[in-house]
Design a protein around this nucleic acid. Structure first.
Lengths: 180, 180
DNA sequence: TGATGCATGTAATCCGTTACATGATTCA
DNA sequence: TGAATCATGTAACGGATTACATGCATCA
């Protein structure tokens, strides 16, 4: 499966038309955001290219007060290309975590730096959870969205629980050492 | 925090000396593998560079039957550089999942493709869990390794549970539709 | 008046992977 | 004999991010 910005744009537009700007925002705070991100610098060229290939159509939308919009819509060929790209066994998930790298090498950092890192991580995780909950309410939850939301929620909840325990442990230990 | 191959090599070598080849293998099946990966093409140049900067030392080790090894060891300056790189608030975790992309857009794939994807995902997750369990036994588990192992296990276990349920649901639905 | 949001786009740059090149040994 | 493991390295290539460029409207 080729999971690049092209396929991502096709996927996003399969649910309705949108501009490049809206795609970026939609990815950032919709269901896609758990497992993907993309920048303007990659989205705009991809949309131009996909349109040239006939997988999308464009329509200029004039707006008063705001700059003009280029609204993209997926074509029949676009849907076919998406279906083809998506019908392949997915590659293994890729997960990169500076946080876990830090925790693995915790002997190089002070307890307060470690605590700060844990708190930041907890914060990030909780924000993600909140966003999922939001999506659940706003978007009409079709089966795919429910699947991704359930999966994300399960993973994030487990992370938070584990971290909260680790945090308590750390605080206890630090207090014990300070008391010596 | 700058989590690139350079920092990764410093981190790995902080636990003992190793060759480029051993670093690659060690990352692949040690605790690092949950949240990082790196190829030879990036490791070898990084080691050369770090040595030139005085953060590592090299020693050629002749071997009978096998090609010579270049064994790298971290220097005092290397440890300092690592500590500096690591004492910064970590960036947010990055997670990319073709699998979830597929599930979100499940209307474009057939039930059997979906089932195959789920089974592959379950397989990948279980392999990861098995590797963690292995690391738990082989490596002497210092606090950092235990932290990462616990975290990884919590997350992966939650994923597997959620997926198993989703799989049962899918099988039930497919059977019901076939019976119509 | 200065930041933020809306809106699009290009160019420089980074960071890494993949493929290639080389070569001995061991195991099936 | 052919694949796999050990071992190092370079070059081509890809894919994306960051920074830059532009410009109007709104809100504090």
């Amino acid at each position: 499966m080729t999971m690049n910005v092209r396929t991502l744009c096709l996927g996003f537009l399969s649910t309705g038309e949108a501009s490049g700007y809206e795609i970026k925002k939609g990815i950032e705070d919709g269901m896609f955001s758990h497992f993907i991100d993309a920048s303007f610098g990659s989205i705009y060229p991809a949309l131009t290219q996909l349109t040239a290939e006939g997988l999308l159509t464009v329509r200029a939308e004039e707006q008063t007060g705001k700059p003009d919009k280029k609204v993209y819509a997926i074509t029949e060929n676009g849907r076919k290309a998406l279906a083809r790209a998506i019908s392949v066994l997915p590659a293994k998930d890729k997960f990169k975590s500076e946080f876990l790298f830090q925790m693995l090498l915790h002997q190089f950092i002070t307890p307060d730096v470690m605590l700060a890192a844990i708190d930041k991580q907890l914060n990030d995780l909780r924000q993600d959870l909140a966003r999922i909950a939001e999506c659940r309410c706003s978007e009409q939850p079709h089966a795919g969205a429910r699947f991704v939301a359930d999966y994300g929620e399960a993973v994030l909840t487990a992370s938070v629980r584990c971290l909260e325990e680790k945090r308590r442990e750390l605080v206890r230990q630090t207090a014990a050492q300070a008391a010596e």
